[in-house]
């Protein structure tokens, strides 16, 4: 089912509600407009554990398999075990309701282009992720009736915790305000390993007022390589940076490595534009790049032009 069909469905439901409700009273500020059912339907996307908010439509585990391999596996791993990005194991070990999985994928995934899947696609990929997590069988079909009924293995272990749900909630850990001779013995029981800070953070003294900024004569920052304007902005804008960095491999190859690989290849630019557009694997490994349908031809040409001017890796 398409997004507009979903909206029409929700719209009909809301029209009924409004018709039945009490007449609107005047607000004293006369600010803000009454929201129309169409406006509400477009934004009212949340799904509750009882299934409220689930749209019409459906999707099977096998349909979800195709979507997942094309649009999710590059980050979350073929089996949800993680490829660079977080594993989807929490579905089995932390999640209480399958409806929440639908809600989240629908609003926030795939990470580079959220809210791009149709209701059928979200149902399908939700079914597939549930199957990957051994929660539903391979012939499961997700829809607004079946999803709320899925029994999540972790359901009964998630418990609202009253201690922190209000300001007067009872604290679970209590210290005392002892003032004198409170500990018999004080020993340092844990600290950072030697060399840890230097290796990971560099010269930490730069994090304090002083040092380089106070020292007018500190060596100048090495200047960045000259770049064709726009490339960097475009890879941000089109979300390429979630999988690619200039200098290092993330999910996809470093753009510098790409530049090196095709430096002497005259046909490379057209070929790369096609590859980005259609997606695919094989040039750098088995993990596929999803098709990048959203950037315009002009933007892709600019990105590839910029990319091929990047200095090599040395």
């Amino acid at each position: 089912m398409s997004r507009s069909e979903r909206i029409v469905g929700a719209l009909a439901a809301i029209a009924l509600l409004v018709a039945a409700g009490p007449a609107a009273a005047q607000s004293k500020y006369h600010l803000g407009q009454k929201a129309t059912p169409e406006q509400i339907a477009g934004w009212d996307i949340d799904v509750r554990p009882d299934g409220a908010g689930l749209p019409a439509g459906q999707g099977s585990v096998s349909q979800g398999n195709d979507i997942y391999d094309a649009q999710c596996a590059s980050c979350h791993g073929t089996f949800g075990e993680s490829n660079t990005y977080l594993a989807l194991t929490g579905v089995k070990t932390k999640l209480n309701y399958a409806t929440t999985l639908y809600d989240y994928i629908n609003r926030a995934m795939p990470f580079p282009h959220s809210k791009s899947l149709s209701a059928d696609e979200v149902y399908a990929v939700t079914a597939y992720v549930l199957n990957l997590s051994d929660v539903v069988p391979a012939d499961f079909v997700a829809d607004r009736d079946s999803l709320p009924k899925v029994e999540m293995p972790y359901r009964d272990r998630v418990k609202p915790y009253s201690g922190l749900m209000s300001v007067d909630g009872k604290a679970d850990v209590q210290n005392t305000a002892c003032m004198q001779n409170c500990e018999k013995e004080v020993k340092v029981t844990a600290s950072l390993p030697a060399g840890f800070v230097e290796n990971l953070y560099g010269d930490i003294r730069d994090n304090f007022r002083g040092l380089a900024t106070m020292n007018k004569l500190a060596p100048p920052v090495t200047s960045a390589p000259v770049e064709v304007a726009g490339g960097l902005e475009l890879i941000q804008k089109h979300g390429c940076v979630v999988c690619h960095a200039v200098d290092k491999k993330i999910v996809g190859p470093a753009f510098r490595s790409v530049a090196d690989k095709y430096r002497d290849n005259a046909d490379a630019r057209a070929q790369l534009i096609r590859k980005i557009r259609d997606g695919g694997s094989g040039a750098w490994g088995t993990v596929p790049m999803p098709p990048q349908t959203e950037p315009s031809d002009a933007d892709l040409a600019t990105v590839v032009e910029w990319l091929s001017t990047l200095p090599g890796e040395k």
């Binding site: 932390k94 999640l95 309701y97 929440t100 972790y154 272990r157 998630v158 915790y161 201690g163 749900m165």
Partner: peptide
């Protein structure tokens, strides 16, 4: 649920820890 709920030693998790 998946995030911002607090895993306890007994394997349960605390929800709505506001």
């Amino acid at each position: 649920t998946l995030q911002y709920s607090d895993l306890m030693p007994d394997g349960s998790s605390r929800q709505y820890t506001w």
